[in-house]
Design a protein around this nucleic acid. Sequence first.
DNA 1: ACCTGAACACCGTTCAAGT
DNA 2: ACCTGAACACCGTTCAAGT
Lengths: 201, 201
Amino acid sequence: MPRKTKPYHHGDLYETLVNAGTALLKDEGLQHFTLRECARRAGVSHAAPKNHFASVEDLLCEIAARGFDQFVRELDAMANAAGSQTPDDRLIAMGRAYVAFARANSAIYLLMFRHSQAFAKSDHLQTAAQAAWMQLETAVRAVIGPQRTDAVVRASHVWALVHGIASLIIDGRLPPSADPAMVIEQSLSTLPAAIRGLGAT
Amino acid sequence: MPRKTKPYHHGDLYETLVNAGTALLKDEGLQHFTLRECARRAGVSHAAPKNHFASVEDLLCEIAARGFDQFVRELDAMANAAGSQTPDDRLIAMGRAYVAFARANSAIYLLMFRHSQAFAKSDHLQTAAQAAWMQLETAVRAVIGPQRTDAVVRASHVWALVHGIASLIIDGRLPPSADPAMVIEQSLSTLPAAIRGLGAT
DNA sequence: ACCTGAACACCGTTCAAGT
DNA sequence: ACCTGAACACCGTTCAAGT
């Protein structure tokens, strides 16, 4: 989804910078992400990005938005894969895909969930993140039934659990004696029953 | 818990830097944390901290370690407060205290759980974080009974859920229609049953 | 033993100047 | 319309020099 027409000198610096930035993020992590290094990888001067992104934050927002796009696609593919027939199965399959994405793309995942007041300033990021949320809420509604009025709270529970699992694994905060695969499977298995029996509503 | 005797010129620059750094973190957030600003707040030259901390990471580790210390104290106080009689109540009370700490000290909480390869290089940080973990595991064992062999996996489930809730709230990633207080209470209420019925073990 | 000030190699951002 | 190079105000880290 291109957002700028081809620039005069370079070819398509906007796309090149997004790609270079994504690669840099995967290579070095968010801590070492640098606009000047993006420019270097793109083969332009350090001031060139200013023509396409107002600031580093802007570039990071676009990378995060595309992360959400891919995230939604992968969860969709997993949830619709053979073997996920019941709503419960589909929800658990989505949970697995969620954690798998986070582990496979940890730097981008961290960026996607990083506190950022600039979040609200990017339309692409906002709509992409909302699409991810809607996807989850739909899966939750399928489990608890459409008559329930508190789907948002229940979906928040699911999101919190998978986000927590993914975060602890990525950041290496699980105790050494805890097998990540076991934690994932055991915790995800509680989800359908938990959101059905949640609270008093 | 002082780690250095009084320095010659300043008084106790080690402690002063830790306090200045903690204040800076609360004021400006991790993104804008700067060693030079810590030195400025401490009233010393920007090179002075080198005598007490080998790098910024070292100072951040000590701040994070003290965060874990306070975290453990607060959870302990909450869990032992009147009204938490049964193990189930105590676990839920700890969950509430967990999220409350994260919300009240968001910058420090983020630091505590930030991915950091330097984590392993600080003894204080490592033991403080482990104390927090042991505290949780003990509360979980009280709920599921001492005969269970998978307390670690069950405790990981609890940790993931509360960490996920806290993270989503801090980072503003809960949908606007989700009331944080409701999400907290509803999700925490599922914990005792979830960890008792977890998996097939 | 601890602290300072200058120095070095970076960074994001700005802006005149080039094409 | 887009890009460059110099400039500015920062940053972490190093190191000689001071007390």
